[in-house]
Every structure is written in C-alpha cells, then in structure tokens.
Amino acid sequence: MNGESREGLALFGGVLGVPPKALKSPLPASRERGDTGGERTSDHMQRQLVAGRPDAWMRLEFNPIPTCPGCQEPTATRAVLDVLEEMGMEGEAILVPGVGCHSLIPFMLDLDHVMSAHGRPPDLASAIKRVLGRGAADRALPLVFTLQGDGDCIAIGAGSLVNAAARSENITVLMLNNVNYGTTGGQMSPTTPLGHATSTTPGGRTPDYGYPVRVPEMLATFQGVAYAARGAVNTPANYQKTRAYIKKAFQTQMAGRGLSMVEVLCSCPPDWHMTPLNSLKWIEAHIIPQFPLGEFKGP
C-alpha cells in the first residue's frame, strides 16, 4: 500500500455500491481545530468547533463509515483518537487491528497500522514494540496498541493475549466487546452473557455453553499486567470514563510498566436484532450487570 491517498478511500464506494458522484459534504474539506473558518452566522456570531470528527479520521467524502447503523465501534475508536490527540501521540502511534468488523476502521484512520491475522494482534504488537522501542536515539518510543473484537481477543486469540500478558509486553490491548461475532452474523462468543440469544445459541446462552469470560478481571491476576479496566460508551458519562481509562492505559504503556488493557462494551444492533436505541437499553439492563464497569488493576 505505497503512496496511499485519500482519493483511494473513495474506492469504498465500490464496496458499498454507491456511485461516487456529486454528493457534496456540508463540512469543509479541511479545517483546524477551534478555527472559526471565517464563517459568520447572521447575528454576528462566530462558530467555534466543540466536537467533530477527530482529525485522524480520514474523510470519506462520498460514503458513510462502513459499519451498521448504531454500531458503537467507531465511537470507541473516537475515544482512542481523542486521547491520542490530547497526548499528541498520533505521530508515534501504531495500530494493530485484528479481524472483525473493526478491521475496516484502520483504513479510515490517518495512523500507521499493520493488520494482523485473526486473533494475533498481541503477537504483532509485541514484535513491533520490541523492534522499534529499542531506545534508538533517532526515535521516540512508539505507542503500540491493538484493536480487537471479543472473538478475536479471547476466543481465537486467547493464547496470544495470555502470553503477551505473561511476557509483560509494553503494549495496550483494546477489546471492543459486542458480546457476539458481529462480522459473521451474530454467533456466540466467549463473552456472550447468559440468556443472550445468538444464532448458535438460539434459546439464549445457558451454563451448558459455559459462562462469559471477564477479560480485565482475568488479566488483573497477571503480575505482568499493569492496567486493566472495562468501560462502555452507551452514555455520555460512560464515554468520558472510558476515555479516561484509555488515557491511563496509554500512559501506563509509555511509562513502560507492562501490559495495559481496556475492554469497551459496544452495541451491535443488527446482530442483537434490536433497534439502536433498544440496544443501548439492553447494554444497561443486561450486559453491564454481568460485566461490571471500572478499573480492576491500576497504577
């Protein structure tokens, strides 16, 4: 992917079947944060940007983001980008996505990334951190983080995750937990809560299929894990807390204290067979009780 350009991203139009033509975005093509843009409203007021697309989010001029309506993975990604911007670390950040719905997100981010095989991002991230973070004089320490789904992280990738924790790798693992396999159509994953119906547990998950895995709690038992937390983005308050967790995780990594991990609960309305708004209620009522929010191991 040499010389990748923004124009190339219009190619997603081919994927989504939308003709790339004159749909004009009302947003200015480029702007600076806090820039008034010279635009004045009629009553001599000026506009100041409060919250927009994060700068690292590349514009897809002709298309929406290729996720389902109400999917919160881009929301979780926004929290990550906000933190990167706050820390001024966008230039040193290397993102390692796995395979799942979130695999598409890095293509839209203006960050260096290496896509991994299903479940293996901790392996790649370990190697990248050790190769680039050798204390060479000509570069700052890289900020290496993975972006994984729940299936990627703890089903197919459990071995990689556990052993990265055992080796106390200085990386950050971000797990977007939508409690099922979203990409393949909503099958049971190890994090599916009891009672949650999926296409492979049509009557709802029962203890016969085991119990949901609580990853931050599990990782907190490792001596080599420095930070483990679980957040959600279903309300503005939870969003802000999650953002704080991610920031702490990144700071833990930059301080070289060991592996840091943040799980983010995300909604998946189509595979839960719910409207987006009902899915937020479902998170509040059925998922958070089985996956308590908070920090489980901290600096």
């Binding site: 040499n2 203006d110 260096d112 990334h113 290496v114 680039l132 570069r139 700052a140």
Partner: peptide, 21 residues
C-alpha cells in the same frame, strides 16, 4: 519506504498501512 514506523517518521508525512486483506 512502506515500513510502518509511526506517522511522524515518514518523509512525506503520509501514513503507512500493512494489510492481510
């Protein structure tokens, strides 16, 4: 010049990405 190093470390300032897709 395709190597992933962090966006700040490329002469042209453009991001690099390596995909298995």
């Amino acid at each position: 010049d395709w190597a992933v190093l962090g966006k700040a470390h490329h002469a042209d300032g453009k991001r690099r990405g390596i995909s298995i897709g």
